[in-house]
């Protein structure tokens, strides 16, 4: 494990160097991701052009949810987003090489790439988060500031776990799990962008307890925004994100371990 941590900067840098070789393309990519973020937020903004409150939440508050969720999601995307290459690795047998090295297989697949291009999207998310922090009427204090950092860290961990579990399905579906993966990653992000009280009860229960998206931002944000919970959930849930994130990561690791035992390689 320590060998793996020690190597991380080196492997990440080797990937970044490869990407920086194509400077123009990299610049275009940053712009592309910038525009993409903008488009995502524009959708929310367009809706608020027609109403002052969405299910009781102001634009500032939704922007805060959006910002925290989006920043977490894009950091996770930067670190593990290339797991959506896993179907290709599995189908082409490129995973063989990974499995001959004295490093954890999941670790190696994750370090196959490092999505520096997502910096553009993260920056955009941060801009919106900063604006939201100043306009959503948050009674800032040290506890809330700390909570914001914890929220982003836990959100990132939860998204990473979701990504891993989703990607691992390809070992059983042989390369066709990618789309389900999207339902949980991009779909998860989309879901966490909005206050969960807009969703129907059954969907909300799934988000809260099965795919723990409600812990990405909704619960901790209730504390930061000092809001009443329209759903009247126990106060304790607002501080449960770290535990949930840890559990999610452990589950993800176990699922991956099962998946890799199903790896079939290729015939040539």
């Amino acid at each position: 494990m320590d060998n793996e941590l020690r190597l991380f900067p080196r492997l990440a840098w080797s990937r970044v160097r490869g990407q920086l070789e194509y400077r123009l393309s990299f610049a275009l990519m940053l712009i592309g991701y910038f525009v993409m973020t903008l488009a995502d937020f524009l959708a929310i903004w367009v809706i608020f052009q027609h109403l002052p409150l969405l299910a009781g939440w102001s634009l500032g508050e939704v922007a805060f949810l959006y910002g925290t969720s989006y920043v977490s999601f894009r950091i996770a995307d930067m670190v593990v987003g290339h797991l959506d290459m896993l179907p290709t690795l599995v189908r082409t047998g490129a995973l063989d090489t990974v499995l001959t090295r004295p490093l954890g297989s999941l670790y190696q697949v994750v370090t196959i790439d490092f999505g520096l291009r997502h910096v553009g999207a993260i920056a955009q998310g941060l801009v919106i988060l900063v604006i939201a922090c100043t306009t959503a009427g948050i009674p800032w204090d040290a506890g809330r500031a700390l909570m914001l950092l914890v929220t982003i860290a836990c959100g990132t961990a939860i998204f990473i776990a979701i990504w891993i579990v989703g990607a691992t399905t390809v070992f059983w579906t042989l390369g066709s799990g990618l789309e389900v993966l999207n339902a949980f990653t991009y779909g998860g992000n989309q879901m966490a962008n909005y206050p969960i009280n807009i969703y129907a009860g059954w969907l909300r229960r799934i988000i809260a307890f099965f795919v723990p998206l409600a812990f990405v931002t909704y619960f901790p944000s209730l504390y930061i925004l000092a809001r009443e919970d329209p759903l009247h959930t126990p106060e304790l849930l607002r501080f449960a994100s770290p535990l949930v994130a840890l559990a999610a990561l452990l589950v993800a690791r176990a699922v991956w371990g099962q998946g890799i035992r199903h790896y079939q390689s290729t015939g040539s």
Partner: peptide, 8 residues
């Protein structure tokens, strides 16, 4: 690398 144009 075509991914930049692709993203836009």
């Amino acid at each position: 690398d075509y991914r930049g144009v692709g993203a836009i």
